[in-house]
Nucleic acid binder design. Structure first.
Lengths: 329, 329
DNA sequence: GGCACTCGTCGAAGCGCTTCGACAGTTTTT
DNA sequence: AAAAACTGTCGAAGCGCTTCGACGAGTGCC
């Protein structure tokens, strides 16, 4: 293994100079810098991560806690994970993966042993048991999702309230007088995951403001047919549908078509879903930018690692993209 | 921060004794061990990961390189990742996530800086550019997938050859005389990813042995209808279908039903797919155990880290589960 | 011309841990 | 009963890096 002293000898400087060249924490003459860099390349030097972590009290690794639970769309999680890893690399950090089932102990372990400098927690619940731990840890963290009591924490999420409202407004603007939001499976609501509630709230608020009738119904992807039938039976005037449940989108489309409704002629259909899905099915949609969320979470974390104080709450806007599941306006 | 010397003082022993209690590398009297453990708990001591890595030359972290490419089923990747992380934890290791797009440089970086002790590479191609690097690295690695030239490397994968053969044999045994294998999108074959070829080979070999006619066709999930129509037109006697392409399974089912064929009455349908998908659709299937693969890959890696020499090639058997997309035998 | 700075570099200390050799005491072997 | 082999513990060295204070040389200012 080639170490810093080898580089120093090769370049004819002291080890500390090599260190300063690498860290940029003191000024170095151009000439010296160049010589050192050449030696580094010539010898193929790579700083030992452990030694660096020990001496500098920074591991340059962040932890990412991924959810395991049902009802969350795996590809989206994966997109965020990939985005987080990619983004972390641009800040010269690596990502250590933690699963949610390691729970509180896992957080304490990686933080306590200085394995990681900071933590990103995905899929935060309203009353997440990890919140007190996160608050007590001596390392910064960023939560993806908003708990009921976010004070003292840095949180980021999509603006589901706005997304729900945008659906209702758009459908109302198209002239629909009775609209429905088909949401996540019942289990998600029961868990008190914030996003489902917030979408619903936005949808209902905007509908009320526009004076249109709004109904909201949870939906299991395996029972899409039932959901469609129920809705159309109980609300014969229903002509606008918003769906916030990726895996249920396709089954729901089939289900509504099976009732004889044509989309967009008889029914306007809008999905809150990632772009790739909406594009594939050619659906008008509110996009939820998964990569963007992963990237921003890392950016916030880096802010904190740099000693700054980023905003406690960040809501990522989504945008409405009109495709062919709603009539041209 | 509480360090090993604090624990030592508290327990009335030397730091080295505490270290030996923790590592078990020398015998320690029960009495001393107990006193030390009590002090550790009392003080909430956690060894500093960096210091440990520096002194022991072991980081207790493994790298996992995840694929990013199209044509691979994301939920399966995620399952393997989760299984790998969970499994690594049982060996007291953590997992650092690397994306494929960091390429060779990423491998050299994490290995060269001693950030990780070993590497798992997912989604290995036939002529993967990473193979020479992996061979030259001073750290052990395990590949998920088989390259064309696996010598000197440890590889593990599902036994697709056997899975393909099992499909053909099962369909033949049901009495079908003309059978088809619908495979991955064309791009996957073009890439020379081994698994697609191996499934095909097994399917064709077994079909030949049983004396039944076998056709093989790639399929893009978005063109399932086309695939089904083509096959039935060109092979009117076709009555047995095997599918090795998760995202295409549902579209294909719809497509075949749309031609008027009933499953299983007119057509036997068997999928090479993860259990959850097959269960949901109630399909006879060859299961591909994703978790098992992640777990075994870690197990192999740990063998190598322990200085053992595990087999160079491991093929994970899959099993056939009869559900209702094929007639009862 | 002298004083106060800044610039570029060095040496040494120290980050917290593991591990090696030593050694006293005990047990086993011959 | 002496020699050999264990057992349990300690002290010290060292893992490879960062960082602090020091310092000589150059620069600007009055």
């Amino acid at each position: 293994m080639v170490k810093i002293s080898d580089v120093a000898r090769h370049a004819g400087v002291s080890p500390s100079t090599v260190s300063y060249v690498l860290s940029g924490k003191r000024s170095i003459s151009d000439q010296t810098r160049r010589r050192v860099m050449d030696s580094i390349r010539a010898l193929g030097y790579r700083p030992h991560a452990g030694a660096r972590a020990l001496a500098s009290n920074r591991s340059n690794v962040i932890a990412l806690v991924v959810p395991l639970r049902s009802g969350i769309h795996v590809p989206i999680v994966m997109q965020m994970v990939i985005a987080a890893v990619t983004s972390a690399r641009t800040y010269d950090h690596d990502v250590l993966l933690l699963t949610q089932d390691e729970g509180i102990g896992g957080l304490e372990r990686v933080a306590g042993s200085s394995l990681v400098d900071a933590i990103i927690v995905m899929d935060v619940e309203m009353h997440d048991v990890r919140l007190p731990v996160l608050r007590s840890l001596d390392r910064p963290s960023v939560l993806i999702g908003f708990p009921a009591e976010p004070s003292g924490l840095t949180c980021i999420d999509w603006d589901f309230e706005a997304a729900g409202a945008a659906c209702a407004e758009y459908l109302a603007d198209l002239g629909h007088r009775e609209i429905a939001l088909i949401g996540a499976p019942p289990a998600v609501y029961e868990r008190g995951t914030g996003f489902a509630e917030r979408t619903k709230a936005g949808f209902q608020r905007a509908a009320a403001e526009r004076g249109v009738i709004a109904v909201v119904r949870p939906c299991d992807p395996d029972h899409a047919r039932e959901a469609a039938d129920d809705l159309l039976r109980d609300h014969p005037g229903l002509t606008g549908i918003a769906v916030h449940n990726e895996p249920a989108v396709e089954p729901l489309l089939s289900a509504f078509r099976a009732t004889g409704r044509r989309i967009p002629d008889d029914l306007s259909f809008i999905a809150i879903a990632p772009d790739d899905l909406a594009e594939r099915l050619d659906l008008t949609s509110i996009s939820i930018p998964a990569e963007e969320l992963g990237r921003q979470a890392v950016a916030l974390l880096m802010e904190k690692l740099d000693g700054h104080q980023p905003p406690g709450a960040t809501l990522l806007p989504s945008r409405l993209v009109v495709r062919s599941s709603t009539p041209a306006a």
